[in-house]
């Protein structure tokens, strides 16, 4: 149920941004505010408690967004969430907005996990290969995982491209056991 509600809010925000905004900027502003919100217990308490009047909540929100320099679209959207007591769904809304925005922009998100940090040359090479592979603009999410031992593991949606040493060892183990 919360995911459905988050999708509904995210879809509304995407519609607004598609008319007069920048998806990436709004997304970045939302993620920044979500990080602040998740880190600050006082801020969560302010938006969660019904004891505080709505005007006071909006004053707090305006102060924070003012300091963060968010656009009016983001500020208004956060105000709506505060009025409707949906601020606790902010992380889900961010994820849903990211996905919807990428769909609207024709961008494919690629999660890349490597055992060691990748150089810029390697990243560019990966970008070029995935653009060729998908025929769309790609957006990388690079992460490190030492348990891969070596190589790279990339994932687009539910498709996994496993070039890691861990994956090769797992495949060798499966062949040896006949499973």
């Amino acid at each position: 149920m919360p995911i459905a509600i988050a999708n509904r809010y995210a879809r509304a925000l995407v519609d607004v941004v598609s008319q007069k905004g920048d998806y990436r900027q709004v997304r970045q502003e939302l993620e920044s505010f979500a990080a602040v919100y998740s880190e600050s217990a006082e801020l969560r308490e302010v938006f969660d408690t019904p004891a505080l009047p709505l005007t006071e909540k909006l004053k707090v929100l305006a102060a924070i967004t003012g300091k963060m320099g968010t656009t009016s679209i983001t500020t208004n959207f956060l105000s709506v969430l505060g009025q409707n007591y949906r601020m606790n769904l902010l992380e889900e809304i961010c994820r849903a907005f990211h996905k919807l925005a990428n769909d609207r922009l024709g961008v494919v998100e690629v999660k890349v996990v490597s055992a060691a940090g990748l150089s810029e040359t390697e990243r560019q090479a990966l970008r070029a290969r995935f653009i060729d592979l998908t025929g769309k603009e790609v957006e990388f999410d690079f992460r490190l995982d030492r348990e891969l031992l070596g190589g790279v593991l990339a994932q687009i949606g539910s498709t996994v491209y496993d070039g890691s040493v861990r994956g090769q060892l797992d495949r060798i183990r499966e062949r040896l056991t006949g499973q």
Binding site: E122, R129, L133, G151, G163
Partner: peptide, 18 residues
């Protein structure tokens, strides 16, 4: 060795995309 592994992965992606 890490560089070679990444290069091999890129090469495999190239074969898949071509």
């Amino acid at each position: 060795g890490q560089r070679r592994l990444v290069g091999r992965f890129v090469g495999e992606l190239t074969r898949k995309s071509s």
